[in-house]
Amino acid sequence: MTPELSRTLNALGTLAVSLVLVLAYFYQLKLYELPCPLCLLQRVGFVSVGVGLGLNLLYGARARHYALMLLGALFGVSVAVRQILLHIVPGTGHYGSPVLGLHYYTWAAICFFLILLGTSIMLMFEKQYENGSTEQRFGGSTLAKVAFFIMLGLAALNAVSTLIECGPTVCADPPTSYKLIDELGNNN
C-alpha cells in the first residue's frame, strides 16, 4: 500500500468517524435527545480515533498514530458494551431512539469493532510508512485537509457541547437539560 493510498483511506476513515459524530449531534440538537454520560464517553472514544486518523493525515502514517486509534477504539467499545449490558437486562429499558432497530450504543460498539479490525489490517502494510518525513503536510491531498478540519471542528464541538450540557461538574444521568445554560439563566 502506497503512502498516498494510506492517506486516502485514513481520510475516508476520518469522514466516517465524523459522520457518526454528526449523526449523534443530529439526535442531540434536532430531536433533543441529550447524550447520557456513557454516550459522551463513547464520543470521546470516537474523537480519540479521529485524533489518530488526523495525525496520519497531517504527518503521514505512523504505527504510533494507529496505536492511538486502537486505544481510543478499545476505550469506546468497552464503554459501549458496558451500556449494552446495562440495558440488556429485562425491564431496564433503553436510552435514546433506535436507528434501524439499534440504539446509539449498539451502533457505537459495532463501529468501534470495525475500527479495531480496520486499524489492525492497516498496520500490516509497511510501505505506507515510507517517505513520511519528506512529505508535505496532508500529502498535498485536499480530501485529507477537508477530513482533518471537519474532525477538528467536531472535536471542538464535542468539548463545547459537553461543557454546556454538564457544566463544570459531573454530568446528570439521565440528562434533562443543558446544565450550564440553566445555571447561567438562574444567576441573572
Rank of each mutant, 00 (worst) to 15 (best):
T2M: 09
S6A: 14
N10V: 11
N10M: 10
S18K: 06
S18D: 08
V20R: 01
L21A: 13
L23A: 13
A24L: 03
L29T: 03
L31N: 11
E33Q: 14
P37E: 14
Q42S: 12
R43T: 06
F46H: 05
F46I: 07
F46Q: 01
V49L: 12
V49N: 01
G50N: 02
V51I: 15
G52V: 08
L53I: 07
G54S: 15
L55W: 09
N56C: 14
L58C: 10
Y59Q: 07
R62L: 09
R62A: 12
H65Y: 14
A67D: 14
L71Y: 08
G72Y: 01
A73M: 06
L74W: 04
G76Q: 07
S78T: 11
V79R: 00
V81Y: 07
V81G: 02
I84Q: 12
L86R: 11
G91K: 12
G91A: 12
Y95W: 11
G96Q: 02
G96C: 05
S97I: 06
V99G: 08
V99L: 15
L100F: 14
L102N: 02
H103G: 05
Y105I: 07
W107M: 12
A109E: 03
A109P: 00
I110D: 05
L116G: 03
L116K: 05
L117N: 05
L117G: 04
T119L: 04
M122A: 14
M122H: 09
M124S: 13
E130C: 04
N131D: 15
N131Q: 14
S133L: 12
S133Y: 10
R137Q: 07
A147K: 03
A147E: 04
A147W: 01
F148Q: 02
F148W: 08
F149E: 09
M151A: 10
M151S: 06
A155T: 06
L157K: 13
N158W: 03
N158I: 01
N158K: 07
N158A: 11
V160Q: 07
V160G: 07
V160C: 10
T162D: 03
T162H: 02
L163H: 09
I164F: 12
E165V: 08
E165L: 15
G167R: 04
T169K: 11
C171T: 04
D173V: 03
P175N: 06
S177A: 13
Y178F: 15
L180I: 04
L180S: 04
D182I: 02
N186K: 15
